[in-house]
């Protein structure tokens, strides 16, 4: 294990950024977000970013191709997938697990080449948690917030940053850094994680046979009643993965791009046939069925939620996956 003095964290960032683009969680206009490091940019004190780390692999908007019409010819220029390596520093264990979930969707054949290129170019440096929020429930999903994965895992203790490479990419990153010293991290105190109010949620009931029972549960009606149908929960969620492909009329052709979409929206999957989900009840049900039931059914039991707690913090009416899961299991809302 390697070490670095926290008082000179800036120098570590400068060393990484000297070789490739670096993103760190920082406050921009008062909001914690993964931002491109430049001299002077400091890490946020917030536990986690408002938007998740998925932004760097699956951005909210990205161009796919441009079509240019000149007379009778149409020229097509597909967008280039990312070619440059980059480092993302300070990813929490929950967000790191979300990459596995996104991988299972975007890297399944046929792989999403834009996403794949970013995943290949990225070196993920995670950061262990020591001060969770009450909304954190990663431990209920089998994630150890004190042993995050990624290419390099980091711990902060007292005045020292401890770094441990987990992959070849991680080894290469650490080897490229000057002045790393050897050291062993002290044992971390995990008692606060035992106090987390949502630590004992059990999601095991949802994978498996009973799909239609969950689908037809009487609780959806009531739970969805006050949902505003906004996209806050989907857009802040590190595992939400739906997008729409749209054309922007440039006047002399088309700019084709994709952007995040939300199953909470009225026009979600409103394709040519026009038969999408008619009311908020069905839209709401889709979001939670996808995370709790469909995803695990299709991906070997892996729940489509990493317990980051963002939807608990951001929903305007405090409806969220925990309330939904509990109501489903109780059979009443």
């Amino acid at each position: 294990m390697k070490t670095w003095k926290l008082s000179t964290l800036d120098a570590l960032f400068a060393a990484i950024a000297g070789k490739q683009t670096l993103y760190i969680p920082a406050d921009v206009a008062g909001q914690p977000v993964f931002a491109r490091w430049e001299p002077g940019l400091a890490m946020t004190r917030a536990l986690n970013t408002g938007r998740s780390a998925k932004d760097l692999f699956f951005p909210q908007v990205e161009d796919l191709a441009r079509f240019r019409v000149a007379g009778k010819t149409v020229s097509v220029s597909p967008a280039q997938a990312l070619q440059e390596p980059f480092v993302i520093f300070g990813v929490r264990a929950c967000d790191c697990r979300s990459f596995d979930i996104l991988d299972s969707v975007f890297l399944a054949e046929p792989a999403d080449t834009f996403y794949q290129a970013r995943r290949e170019q990225a070196t993920v440096v995670t950061l262990a948690c020591s001060q969770p929020e009450e909304t954190c429930f990663c431990t209920s999903l089998g994630i150890d917030p004190q042993a995050p994965g990624g290419d390099v895992s980091c711990w902060m203790a007292e005045d020292t940053l401890y770094l441990q490479a987990n992959t070849e990419k991680g080894e290469a990153l650490l080897a490229s850094l000057p002045r790393l010293e050897d050291g062993e991290k002290p044992d971390a105190d995990s008692s606060v994680f035992d106090k987390l109010p949502l630590k004992d949620l059990d999601f095991s009931a949802f994978s498996g046979k009973a799909l239609m029972d969950w689908f037809n549960s009487p609780v959806w009606e009531r739970l969805s009643q006050s949902c505003l149908g906004c996209g806050s929960c989907t857009f802040v969620c590190p595992t939400c993965q739906c997008y729409d492909v749209r054309d922007f009329d440039t006047g002399h052709g088309v700019q084709r791009y994709r952007c995040w979409d939300s199953c909470m929206y009225s026009d979600f999957t409103m394709m040519a046939h026009g038969t999408n989900r008619p009311t908020q009840k069905e839209r709401f049900r889709q979001r939670f069925m996808h995370k709790l039931v469909y995803h695990p059914n299709n991906h070997g039991g892996q729940i489509g939620c990493v317990g980051c707690g963002r939807c608990l913090q951001k929903c305007p009416i405090s409806m969220n996956i925990v309330k939904v899961a509990n109501a489903l299991k109780e059979g009443k809302a």
Binding site: Q60, G231, P316
Partner: peptide, 16 residues
Amino acid sequence: RGELSKCIRCNACRNV
């Protein structure tokens, strides 16, 4: 611009 560039177009402001 600083403020609006943070917008994720979740539409919560409109829907509420």
